[in-house]
Design a binder for these strands. Structure first.
Length: 203
DNA sequence: TCAGGGATTCTT
DNA sequence: AGAATCCCTGAC
């Protein structure tokens, strides 16, 4: 069962928490790809120095963050890697949640092909390395700039499904990764991940 | 118009 | 620890 508008309208930090354990699904022409969300980070709009929308920055890149929750915010980082984000918060408040790691569920062979181009024997050893980072999961799941501005709801190619619920005691909250430039906001506990899960990004 | 830097990943 | 690699942003 797919998530609802009401689910997406939760405050950003609660939505981030609730996304842990959900299944991210991408229907491609080559098949269905999906994975369980095991790590996310919240970016809280104008008042968060780590956010692209800090200070109300509103450009063609960040524009979608000002729209309704549930839109897809894609961006390219370091000239090479895509990152997949879900717009959150009320309309006009530019918040978003970065999906940082998945546990592969469906379409694992295609994901391996997308990531490494190869080969059955290579598979097993690389399984844990398939989607354990924001750029890696985009490559594996074929998430790219074409998805910018899509909605997670209206029968688009990307969606999120409910799965088994996750207990609070299995979730770790900690500071976000690679945002040293955010000064006093670098220490905010806006990262959520499953405890001891092998597909959480290392850092 | 242009220089600087980045919500990363892979290799050395 | 350093490279790859290029779009976005803000300043000039």
């Amino acid at each position: 069962m797919t998530i609802t508008k009401e689910f997406l309208e939760q405050p950003t930090l609660e939505l981030a928490r609730q996304l842990i354990g959900k299944e991210l699904v991408h229907e491609t022409t080559q098949g269905t790809l999906s994975g369980k969300i095991v790590e996310v980070e919240a970016y809280k709009g104008p008042e968060d120095k780590a956010a692209h929308s800090y200070g109300g920055r509103r450009t063609s890149r960040t524009e979608i963050m000002y729209s309704a929750p549930g839109h897809v915010y894609m961006f390219l980082i370091y000239g090479m890697h895509h990152c997949f984000n879900i717009v959150s918060g009320p309309i006009g408040k530019p918040e978003a949640i970065l999906i940082r790691a998945l546990e592969p569920i469906q379409g694992i062979e295609l994901m391996l092909k997308n990531r490494f181009g190869i080969k059955e024997s290579y598979l097993r050893s690389q399984y844990r390395n398939l989607t354990n980072g924001p750029g890696k999961l985009c490559k594996a799941m074929q998430l790219n700039m074409d998805l910018y501005g899509q909605t997670l709801m209206d029968n688009h190619s990307v969606s999120i499904r409910h799965s088994q619920s996750v207990d609070d005691s299995d979730i770790i909250r900690s500071p976000r990764i690679n945002i040293d430039y955010a000064e006093e906001h670098a220490a905010l506990p806006y990262r959520f991940h499953l405890r001891d899960h092998p597909h959480v990004s290392k850092a």
